[in-house]
Write a protein that binds this DNA or RNA. Structure first.
Lengths: 264, 264
DNA sequence: CGTGCCAGGTGCCGT
DNA sequence: ACGGCACTTGGCACG
């Protein structure tokens, strides 16, 4: 009973054979493994990489995703996504961890020459993660209040599939023109203009209409976008994700308590 | 002296005030911090996120990058890149870690309600990381042996800047035509064709030549790419990153020992 | 499955 | 700082 409540079990790192067995068993039991030590790593798959010896943190999660972290930088130096086959063995007194991904076929081998700490973690995480102000939120905000794009705009459909992709929002303006809206939560660039131009062309073909309006909605646009947009006859409407949040969830007033926590 | 050699220092988690001080000092000394415990997290910046309570692993690296990992999935649920301002405090007996990024302004707050393990890591990692079979390797291989793209091809320049971006390789074919090569290490798609079409157009304008050839070099291409490429007059040459490695570093024979390790 | 497209993308490099 | 682009990009959604 006491054992069941134990979240962290530190392992004896002096006996590699025993360590190997403990780690393997824990992994089978759905635990997360944490190893800190000196290791080298080799990866072969879509690309190939070599990492010479140094101190790192290896995390093998309960879903068998694998992360090898150096003491610097936000990204892992080597990794394997969830669902990998993880094999823990020992060779010449060294702990060897082999992680294989099936499709695409990729192999990561981490060899520890020294282990400073090894731990079995029994983590329970049923927490809910919510992310706001995505491009989807911007779309919802525009559908809820189309006037933020243009006065008198009436949405007709969203995520409409056409030949070359999906139209974010299709609408009719106050003069009865068909409008294609392309939403970007970041700076609109050349590709944005080209993408929208394709959708406009697709829709003109489908509708058999001479002129379909194309509007890019984004917080900002590059100068290259503006130049290209002009020559393609595409319009631009600035709109920030933050503004969209306000439309979806009310004004900032509602969130003052939360904001205070960040300011304090 | 003994202290200096210690790679991992486990901390007493019963006294939050003391823990806070130890962690803060260690961070100032360039150590990496590792905290396992139950926490909630809030992020506000380019977007906004909330994470309710659950067991997680928090890593604060020596370069002040911050990673909050759930027991599942390859990616951190919340993070902050290197160079963030990290503030460790206590509030109502709970450890609170505030991580601020200046540009763009983003804040991450992690609040621990319970701490299972806290450790200070003194990691030394001077290891060398080498990545092979990147797009750059493909470019090098083509420059070393242009015949793999087309017999008689003579490279003229690489990474040449034009109006709409950078040309991977500019070359002259055996008939004296100007050729623009666009390299992709993954499947060539519509955007690849459009990108190359822009470069071809740019170069035709610069050179004042009627026809510049455009060739996409990639391991594969989508059917949509092939259709668009045909209508744009763009050519496609299949070439795998692996083949490029062989050209750069010799045949597989040389690497047999390394390969054996992966097979075994 | 491939194909397309978003991501708090990140990281590198250039003007 | 903005701009263009690669990345073992990862992730999802849809045909």
């Amino acid at each position: 009973m006491e054992e069941k409540l134990k979240r962290v079990t530190l392992l004896d790192t002096s006996n590699i054979e025993n360590l190997k067995n403990m780690l393997g068993k824990a992994l089978n039991d759905g635990r997360t493994l944490l190893i800190v030590g000196a290791c080298s790593a080799d990866y072969i798959g879509r690309a190939r990489s070599e990492l010479t010896i140094g101190d790192r943190i290896l995390i093998i999660k309960s879903d068998r995703s694998v992360l090898l972290h150096r003491p610097r930088s936000y990204k892992p130096v080597n990794w394997q996504p969830s669902g990998s086959i993880v094999n823990i063995s020992s060779k010449e007194g060294r702990l060897v961890i082999k992680c294989i991904r099936e499709r695409p076929r990729e192999t990561l081998i981490v060899k520890f020459s020294e282990i400073y700490t090894a731990a079995i973690l029994n983590l329970e995480d049923e927490g809910v993660f919510s992310l706001y102000a995505s491009e989807e939120d911007m779309r919802k905000a525009i559908l809820k209040n189309p006037d933020i794009v243009e006065e008198g705009l009436k949405p007709v459909s969203f995520e409409r599939p056409v030949t070359s992709g999906f139209i974010d929002i299709e609408a009719i303006d106050k003069n009865g023109n068909i409008v294609v809206i392309e939403i970007k939560r970041r700076t609109a660039d050349i590709d944005t203009a080209l993408q929208l131009a394709r959708y406009v062309k697709d829709l003109e073909k489908i509708k058999g209409v001479g002129k379909v309006r194309g509007i890019v909605v984004a917080p900002r646009a590059t100068t290259e976008f503006k130049r290209l947009a002009r020559s393609l006859g595409i319009e631009f409407k600035p709109l920030s994700p933050k503004r969209c949040l306000e439309i979806l969830y009310g004004t900032e007033e509602k969130r003052e308590i939360t904001l205070d926590e960040f300011i304090s």
